[in-house]
Design a protein around this nucleic acid. Structure first.
Length: 695
DNA sequence: CCCCAGAGTCAGGAGGACCT
DNA sequence: AGGTCCTCCTGACTCTGGGG
C-alpha cells in the first residue's frame, strides 16, 4: 500500500508553519488547533485541549535528545500533573497526543528520532491515523502503522548501518519507501527481516505500574543490547529486591512476590534451564501467590500482570543464556498464561444443537447482548461489518425479499445493506426476518438512549462525516472491539459440547453456519455468494460444511437427476462416483465437473475436452454445482431451454431464472397489496436482468 | 469522603484464518 | 501467493457499589 509521505513532507516544508527556529506562540497555537481539529471525537476533548499545549511544550524540551518510552511517559505524567488540576494517570489518549506532538515535531525537523521513540511514536492508533490524514495530508488510511514502524527500522538495515539516533532522516525515509514499494521488491520479505530484528532486540519491560519506573523497555541496537542488557536487567532485579526490602510496608502486595522472583532470578539466572523454569512456575505458582501475597484478597489481574513481567524476564534470561553462552540446546519457552487453543484448520460451523443451546441460554442475556447474538446468528454478517454498520442502511420500512427454506418471497420483511470491508465500497444485501428486524430495533433504541436523536446524529469523527454508525462505544467512536464483547457474551453463555467441554464460539463461525444453512436449503450459488459477500465461488467450498447432503440432494433432486454424476479427473483417467464416494473423493481431487455443463476450476478449462462441459466455451464462467439442488420441475424446463442455446449454457442462466421466479412472485404481491418496492442498487441490477430475460 | 474489588471496556500486537 | 482482517491476548483504564 502506497502512501505519499514525501509529498506530504514537501508540502509541509513549503508551507512550513515554523522553521527550525523556535516556535512562536502563534505558530504553536495553529499547530495545536490543527491537532485538536483532528482529535475532536475524543470524549474528553476539554481535558485534552487544556493539556495539549503543555504536551507540546514538553515534547519540545526533548529536542534532539535520546529518551526512552517509559521514561518519557512517566516524566510527561509528572509534568502534566504538576501543571494542571487533573490527576494524570497513564491515559491512552493522552499518550496518543504525545505521540502526535512528537511526530509533528519530527516531521518539522525539530526533533530527531531515537530507536526507542520510533517505537514510541509509530504505534498504530486511530488518532495518529486521523492526524496524519487530515493534517499532514498523508494518504495512509490503509497503511498499518506497524508497517510504518517496520519501514523506519528497516531503513537502518537497508542502509547497512548500525543504528544511530540521528541516522534516520527524511531523505532516507523517502528513499527507503521508494525502494520498498517498488514493484520489483516484495514488502513481505522485508517484514520477515523485520521480524527477525524485532524478536531479537525487543525486550518487554518487567516494570509494574505500581513500581518505580525503570528503563527496561529496551529497544536498542546490537551493541547497546550486548553491552547493557546484562547489567541493566540485573540492575533492575537488584533494584526490585532493594525496594522490596525497603518498602515492604508501603507496598505489601507486590514486594514479597517480586522479592521471591527476584531472588530466584539472581541466584539462578546464570544456570536457569527450561526445566527449572517450567517446574518453578508450575509447582510454585499457586503456593507462592497464596503464601506470599495472599491471592484471595488482591486483584487476580494484578497478580497475573506481575507474573507476566517476571515471565518475560525469565524469557530474557533464557534467551541471554542461549545467545551469549552459545548454548546450542533447543529452548522452548512456554507462555504459561497462554491457554488459548487455537484451531489450526479452518473454523468450524456451529452445530445445530449448539445453536439451540445458544438460543436457549441467551434468554439470560440482556437485551443488547441478545440482539447481537440474534444478528450474528441469523445473517452471516462479518464481525466488522456490524461494527461499522450504518443506521441508514437499515431499511425498516422497506418491502423486500427474504430467503427461506422454500424460497418464498415475503415483502413484510426488510433487508440490510452492508458495506463490505474486504472490498472497499462494495455493498451487499442481507435479507432479514422479523426476529433480526427486532434485534436491530433494539440496538437502534439503545443508540438513541445513549447518544440522542438518531436522525440528527452526525458521527463525531470528522472523516466519517455524516455516517451514523449503529454501534458506538462509550466514547461515541466506532465499536472497534466488538469482537471482545461477542467473546465475552459467549463466555457468559457457557456453551458445552456433548462431552461437557466448554466451547469457544466466535462471531465468524456464524458465517460458516449461515452458509451451511443456506446451501442445505438449496440456495443457489450466486445468491449465496451475494449474501456472503464473496467474489470467488471457490470460497463457498471453504465455508460449506454441508457437502455430503449437498451432493446427495443435488443427485436426487436436480433436474439432471437421472443422469447426475460427478466425474473426477485424475491424470486423464476419469471415474464416476456417487453418494458417499463423491463426498470422499471431493476433497481429494481438484478437478471435477458435472455432466450438463458445470465446470469448477480454472485449470480445468485448459484441459477439458468433454463435449458436455459448457464451461470451456465461456469466458467468465465459474461455479460449483450446489445451485442445482434447488431446482424444481418448472425450472427444469427453463434450464433445458437455456442450455440448449449457444452462449447461454451456463449456471448464469439458472441464476437469472431463479431471479425471475423471485421477481415474478414479488411483482404479483406488489400488485395485489399495492406495495411500494424499494430497491437497492443490487436489486435494481437484478430487476434489470429480470426484465432483460422477459419479465 | 476514600478505598477496594470486581466487572466491564478498549487499544494495540501477533499470528494466522480468510479472501482475492 | 499475497493481501486483508479476525481472533486471540494483555495492559490498563472506567464504573459501580459496598465498607470503613
Amino acid at each position: 500500500m502506497k502512501y505519499n509521505a514525501h509529498i506530504a513532507n514537501d508540502e509541509i516544508r513549503n508551507n512550513a508553519i515554523c522553521t527550525n527556529k523556535k516556535y512562536s506562540q502563534r505558530k504553536k497555537d495553529i499547530i495545536i488547533s490543527n491537532i485538536l481539529k483532528s482529535y475532536t471525537y475524543c470524549s474528553t476533548k476539554k481535558l485534552y485541549s487544556e493539556m495539549l499545549p503543555l504536551i507540546f511544550d514538553f515534547v519540545l524540551k526533548f529536542k534532539c535528545r535520546q529518551i526512552n518510552n517509559g521514561l518519557f511517559y512517566s516524566l510527561l505524567s509528572d509534568y502534566l500533573e504538576q501543571r494542571t488540576h487533573y490527576k494524570i494517570s497513564a491515559h491512552k489518549y493522552l499518550n496518543t497526543l504525545a505521540k502526535i506532538c512528537t511526530f509533528y515535531l519530527y516531521i518539522e525537523g525539530e526533533i530527531s528520532l531515537t530507536y526507542s521513540n520510533i517505537e514510541f511514536l509509530t504505534t498504530k492508533s486511530t488518532a495518529l491515523e486521523t492526524f496524519m490524514t487530515s493534517i499532514l495530508g498523508m494518504k495512509i488510511k490503509k497503511v498499518n502503522f506497524q508497517d510504518l514502524r517496520f519501514d523506519m527500522l528497516l531503513i537502518v538495515m537497508f542502509k547497512n548501518k548500525t543504528i544511530n539516533v540521528f541516522d534516520i532522516t527524511n531523505e532516507m525515509l523517502i528513499e527507503y519507501r521508494e525502494f520498498i514499494y517498488s514493484e520489483e521488491e516484495s514488502v513481505s520479505s522485508h517484514k520477515l527481516e523485520y521480524h527477525r530484528l524485532h524478536n531479537r532486540l525487543y525486550i518487554r519491560g518487567i516494570v509494574s505500574e505500581n513500581s518505580p519506573r525503570i528503563d527496561t523497555n529496551l529497544i536498542s541496537n546490537n551493541d547497546y543490547f550486548d553491552k547493557l542488557a546484562d547489567s541493566e536487567v540485573k540492575t533492575a532485579i537488584l533494584y526490585y529486591i532493594e525496594n522490596a526490602k525497603l518498602k515492604t510496608n508501603s507496598k505489601p502486595k507486590i514486594r514479597p512476590h517480586l522479592l521471591h522472583f527476584g531472588l530466584f532470578a539472581e541466584t539462578n539466572y546464570k544456570s536457569v534451564s527450561l526445566q527449572q523454569y517450567n517446574s518453578f512456575i508450575a509447582e510454585h505458582y499457586k503456593n507462592i501467590l497464596k503464601e506470599e501475597i495472599n491471592i484471595g484478597k488482591i486483584s487476580k489481574n494484578w497478580a497475573c500482570n506481575c507474573l507476566v513481567r517476571v515471565n518475560s524476564f525469565f524469557n530474557f534470561l533464557i534467551d541471554y543464556e542461549y545467545r551469549v553462552c552459545q548454548n546450542s540446546r533447543d529452548i522452548f519457552i512456554p507462555n504459561i498464561f497462554d491457554e488459548r487453543n487455537v484451531e489450526k484448520n479452518r473454523r468450524s460451523n456451529i452445530k445445530e444443537h449448539i445453536i439451540e443451546q445458544i438460543r436457549h441460554k441467551s434468554e439470560s442475556l440482556d437485551e443488547i447482548e441478545k440482539a447481537l447474538v440474534t444478528i450474528y446468528l441469523g445473517t452471516g454478517i462479518r464481525l466488522n461489518e456490524l461494527a461499522v454498520f450504518r443506521v441508514e442502511n437499515f431499511h425498516d420500512n422497506a418491502s423486500n425479499l427474504i430467503y427461506s427454506s422454500d424460497l418464498a418471497v415475503d415483502p413484510d420483511i426488510g433487508w440490510i445493506k452492508v458495506t463490505g470491508t474486504k472490498i472497499q465500497n462494495k455493498e451487499r444485501i442481507i435479507l432479514i426476518n422479523k426476529e433480526i428486524f427486532k434485534a436491530f430495533e433494539i440496538l437502534k433504541r439503545d443508540r438513541i438512549n445513549k447518544f440522542g436523536n438518531l436522525e440528527k446524529m452526525i458521527h463525531p469523527i470528522p472523516e466519517v462525516g455524516e455516517a451514523n454508525f449503529l454501534l458506538l462505544n462509550n466514547s461515541a467512536r466506532p465499536y472497534k472491539t466488538l469482537g471482545n464483547r461477542i467473546r465475552t457474551i459467549f463466555e457468559k453463555l457457557d456453551l458445552r459440547d456433548e462431552n461437557g467441554k466448554q466451547l469457544k464460539i466466535t462471531a465468524h463461525q456464524f458465517r460458516h453456519s449461515y452458509l451451511t444453512d443456506l446451501v442445505k436449503h438449496g440456495c443457489p450459488i450466486h445468491l449465496a455468494m451475494d449474501f456472503m459477500g464473496h467474489v470467488d465461488p471457490q470460497m463457498l467450498h471453504w465455508y460449506n460444511h454441508h457437502k455430503k447432503d449437498l451432493l446427495e440432494i443435488a443427485r436426487e433432486e436436480s433436474i439432471v437427476s437421472n443422469e447426475f454424476e460427478i466425474k473426477i479427473e485424475d491424470n486423464r483417467n476419469t471415474m464416476v462416483v456417487k453418494g458417499d464416494e463423491i463426498n470422499r473423493q471431493y476433497s481429494k481431487f481438484n478437478k471435477y465437473y458435472i455432466r450438463g455443463g458445470i465446470c469448477t476450476t480454472d485449470e480445468f478449462q485448459d484441459e477439458c475436452d468433454y463435449i458436455d462441459c459448457i464451461e470451456c466455451k465461456q469466458e467468465t464462467f465459474k461455479t460449483n454445482y450446489s445451485f442445482v439442488s434447488h431446482l424444481n420441475k418448472s425450472m427444469q424446463h427453463y434450464y433445458s431451454l437455456w442450455i440448449s442455446e449457444e452462449n447461454h449454457g451456463s449456471d448464469r442462466a439458472i441464476y437469472l431464472l431463479y431471479l425471475c421466479r423471485l421477481y415474478e412472485k414479488l411483482l404479483r404481491k406488489v400488485e395485489n397489496n399495492k406495495y411500494v418496492h424499494e430497491v437497492s442498487l443490487n436489486f435494481e441490477e437484478r430487476s434489470r436482468i429480470a426484465k432483460e430475460v422477459g419479465l
